[in-house]
Nucleic acid binder design. Structure first.
Length: 634
RNA sequence: GCUGAUGUAGCUCAGUCGGUAGAGCACCUCAUUGGUAAUGAGGAGGUAGGCAGUUCGAAUCUGCUCAUCAGCUCCA
């Protein structure tokens, strides 16, 4: 048979050789590194005989497919271990994921933490037993009967839902058999360095209408050192948790008295105000005008906007003079009423109306998460009202704004295009047109994106920007939504050049997403060491003895005069202690003043990052810090 | 909302078999005036998330409830 390799070269091999055997002929190291392979572009077992002409790629740990095969095999080992220890458990599904793998089980009594330890030991045993994996296929009816006999109802359901022509394959290792498309490693002994991470509930097939199963999360690495490093990184990441840093740095907190309703303390307000100022400045430059609309508006408005029908579960309600009102979950109706206050000409468009609007949403209690998921938050909203011709340039302008914002903070981001959801308003044509416009804008910018089917807003499709937190979870922050529905519902118009009324189109967009979530992400991103332009205290004046107190106060006042956030630490403590505290509070600059500095009229400057910078005059320091602030250095 | 776990001073945590609460940091006082990540001594501070129950007696056992954490679902 003729085997072609990725570089285009080809060679003849004996029919029936496996990818692993071919790899071994090329080099023993290649064979050792090969986890699974790609046969004509499709993932396949490297241990199964090949016949006929094919192209082959060997996948090692560096390839996603390689890791996937390794970890998916680990998930089978997990299932086998559970079956050995708890024979009455039934199996659901167990895929590999980005950070490892999981397996869902149906077990009457929940797993305990001790069970996890036992399971882990059993997994190691299975690895040591080095059981070979075998693959076999069964016709549909036989496959169903096979799983029925094994007492695996979830597997039966999975097979029944497979397309008629699907190949139904199983993998066997020792006495354990699982329905699986593969690919896998050749034996359990090849999978090492497995670690079970956590237990959780998970709905069968991801639907809350179904039974909740028990999910065991684990991870596995080819090299022990990589596993150790991963575990270490997770530990380190926990130290960056914004909920912990928020308390330590006295930025914000959430009390039991108001679950999901965060408090911002003075230090946190500095960051918030800094972000808002930046936001105002940037939007002013881009031709946006600012609005402020009420938090509570009457029932009629929410019925008209569609929120009453499509968003009621997430809204808070109240009565005023015996009439129904709702607390706004979104700012758009306010912006729309503002648009309707007068007659717009096509010459006035696009009209870009921005609002830092406080919204309230009733989120499920289990979904709350620090500042990332709260029940009241400020969206840095903007609504653009425009003619259809302006859609493209406006979308491009908004995307440019996003890139500028995230670039300023040094964030990595992932883009998703979310399409029409089930519970939505409008016609298919409108949705298609809006979705195409968003897609075209993304393509024009060359932004890579993933399509998220059915995840749009009820009034339109959207482009979402996801940012990462300390442990790699991503959170949707920015969004750009194109809306043909609201203008229709509210009968929005503008007068065209033809003196006729026309229907404008709307863009709803937020860059930060919510100020709260953004601060959460930012806190984790910089581990609490905010860039100087946002740091709650930018410079702290530390005295060595109380002989320097007057001078310290003078320096502080001078910095404040220059618009900087400066504090003194005049306490009767040693400098080492004061430095330690300022350092832990992540103050960008510490200005040490002792007898020498008083005498020479200088400051001994210490940077939180670079340590002692030597002495400089107060004027020189102001200049240095001002430059750092102006440039928004990270 | 669902599954599981957790809930002791402002923070981080300890507390053997149910016998009536302990440390470090922070805070206050005093001494000390010291050069780049913790000076020393003393003091004050909690009725154990909340409610109910079992018991002679509960932080320790039971039930309910609230909140938090992990995940699911949902979402900015």
């Amino acid at each position: 048979m003729k085997i072609t390799f990725p570089d285009g070269s080809a060679r003849e091999y004996a029919d029936g050789m496996t990818a692993l055997e071919i790899a071994a002929e090329i080099s023993p190291r290649l064979a050792k590194a090969t986890l699974v392979c790609e046969l004509d572009g499709k993932l396949a077992d490297a241990f199964r005989p090949i016949s006929g002409d094919h192209t082959v790629r060997f996948l090692d740990w560096k390839e996603e497919g390689g890791r996937w095969g390794y970890r998916h095999t680990a998930s089978h080992i997990l299932a086998q271990a559970v079956k050995r220890l708890f024979p009455d458990v039934t199996l659901a599904i167990g895929p590999a994921i980005d950070t490892g793998f999981y397996y869902d089980f149906d077990k009457p009594e929940p797993f305990s933490a001790d069970d996890l330890t036992k399971i882990e030991e059993e997994m190691e045993r299975i690895s040591r037993e080095d059981l070979s994996l075998e693959r076999f296929e069964l016709p549909r009816e036989e496959a169903i009967r096979y799983m029925q006999e094994k007492g695996e109802p979830y597997k039966v359901e999975l097979i029944q839902d497979l397309p008629e022509d699907a190949i139904i394959s199983f993998y066997k290792q020792g006495d354990f058999v699982d329905l699986c498309a593969g690919p896998h490693m050749q034996s359990t002994g090849k999978v090492k360095n497995m670690k079970l991470m956590s237990l959780a509930g998970a709905y069968w097939r991801g639907s809350e209408k179904n039974k909740m199963l028990q999910r065991i999360y684990g991870t596995a690495f080819e090299k022990k050192a990589d596993l150790d490093e991963y575990l270490f990184r997770m530990e380190e990441a926990k130290k960056r948790d914004h909920r912990k840093l928020g308390r330590e740095l006295d930025l914000f907190d959430i009390h039991d008295e108001g679950p999901g309703f965060p408090f911002f303390y003075p230090n946190g307000m500095v960051i918030r105000n800094g972000l808002e100022n930046f936001w105002r400045e940037q939007h002013q430059k881009r031709g946006y005008k600012e609005l402020r609309t009420p938090i509570i508006l009457n029932r009629d408005l929410w019925i008209r906007s569609g929120h009453w029908d499509h968003y009621k579960n997430n809204m808070y309600f109240t009565k005023i003079d015996d009439m129904d009102y709702a607390v706004k979950p979104m700012n758009c109706p306010g912006a729309i009423l503002s648009y309707k206050r007068k007659i717009y000409s096509y010459r006035d468009l696009p009209e870009r109306l921005a609002e830092l609007g406080l919204v309230h949403r009733h989120e499920l209690s289990g979904a709350l998460h620090g500042l990332m998921r709260v029940r009241c938050f400020t969206q840095d909203d903007a609504h653009i009202f425009m003619t259809p011709e302006q859609i493209r340039p406006e979308l491009l302008g908004v995307i440019e704004k996003f890139q500028y914002f995230y670039g300023t903070f040094g964030f990595k981001y992932y883009v998703e295009l979310s399409t029409r959801p089930e519970n939505s308003m409008g016609s298919d044509e409108q949705w298609e047109e809006a979705t195409d416009a968003l897609r075209a804008a993304l393509d024009a910018c060359g932004l890579p994106y993933k399509v998220n089917e059915g995840d749009g807003a009820f009034y339109g499709p959207k482009i979402d920007f996801h940012l990462e937190d300390a442990i790699g979870r991503t959170w949707q922050c920015g969004t750009i939504q194109l809306d043909f529905q609201m203008p229709e519902r509210f009968d929005l118009t503008y007068v065209g050049a033809d003196n006729e009324k026309h229907r404008p189109v709307m863009i709803h967009t937020v860059v930060f997403g919510s100020i709260e979530r953004f601060i959460g992400i930012l806190t984790e991103h910089c581990a609490g060491a905010f860039p100087a332009w946002l740091a709650p205290v930018q410079a702290k004046v530390l005295t060595i003895t109380d002989r320097a107190n007057d001078r310290a106060a003078q320096v502080r006042d001078m910095l404040r005069e220059a618009g900087m956030r400066a504090e003194c630490d005049l306490r009767n403590e040693k400098v080492g202690f004061k430095i330690r505290e300022a350092q832990m509070q992540k103050v960008p600059y510490m200005l040490v003043i002792g007898d020498k500095e008083v005498e020479q009229g200088v400051l001994a400057v210490r940077s939180r990052r670079e340590g002692d910078l030597g002495t400089m005059t107060p004027e020189a320091f102001v200049q240095k810090l001002q430059k750092e602030i102006d440039e928004k250095q990270n």
